[in-house]
Write a protein that binds this DNA or RNA. Structure first.
Lengths: 101, 101
DNA sequence: ACGTAGTATCACGTTGTCGTTATGACGTGA
DNA sequence: TCACGTCATAACGACAACGTGATACTACGT
């Protein structure tokens, strides 16, 4: 939240990205995320908290359940763009390698 | 490089972002980056290596100097987009807080 | 009031990352 | 070949992040 680097850090963890992807289609409660991801409940709870603090996700208690939902789906566009750049980088790496060999 | 999370990790470090920003205008050799950033030489070298491995930056030895340059300036667009989302998140956070108070 | 399901948090061990200091490697010019 | 500037790497300590197991908290139904 502090710096831009901290914001990137939010997405720099595989399990956290998995949790985030789970919420792509729509709101889910914690247990649902746990089941979909196969991660431990404590871990999912932690990641959801972090995502909440980062302002990526909104927490909405409903009875005894707690639903989480992505606030701005634009984050997924960020993921897409990052993946594009990443793949382009890889291509470039291979080309550089091929140029040597 | 492996996963998308790893790619995000590249940008999740303040000093590394600083180094990257330094290369925005154009290629620079290591010492120049050191001077512009005020970071230690060893640290700059490390970050540049990481950026190179990530395919964000290209290494080009020239005599006894080693120049680094950003391969795809599209990365800066990624930074911009991330910052936008981050600021939007902050606004949202404040609004949520205001709604409570 | 009690038990239970759902969620959050704590304490802990493990691992990874960052930064520094010191040293090594390389190219260049004298 | 020697000294120097430039860059990379190694070794180390400090610290943060991750994941787990256990435990607290809360809302609900009985």
């Amino acid at each position: 939240m502090e710096s831009l680097a901290d914001y990137f850090k939010v997405f720099s963890e595989p399990n956290r990205l998995t949790v985030l992807e789970t919420l792509r289609p729509g709101p889910l409660n914690v247990t649902a995320v746990v089941e979909k991801t196969g991660l431990s409940q404590a871990l999912v709870s932690k990641h959801l908290k972090l995502l909440t603090i980062a302002g990526v996700v909104r927490r909405r208690p409903e009875g005894s359940l707690v639903f989480y939902e992505v606030i701005d789906k634009g984050v997924f566009q960020l993921l897409v763009q990052a993946r594009k750049l990443m793949l382009a980088s890889r291509r470039q790496q291979l080309d550089a390698l091929a140029a040597i060999l």
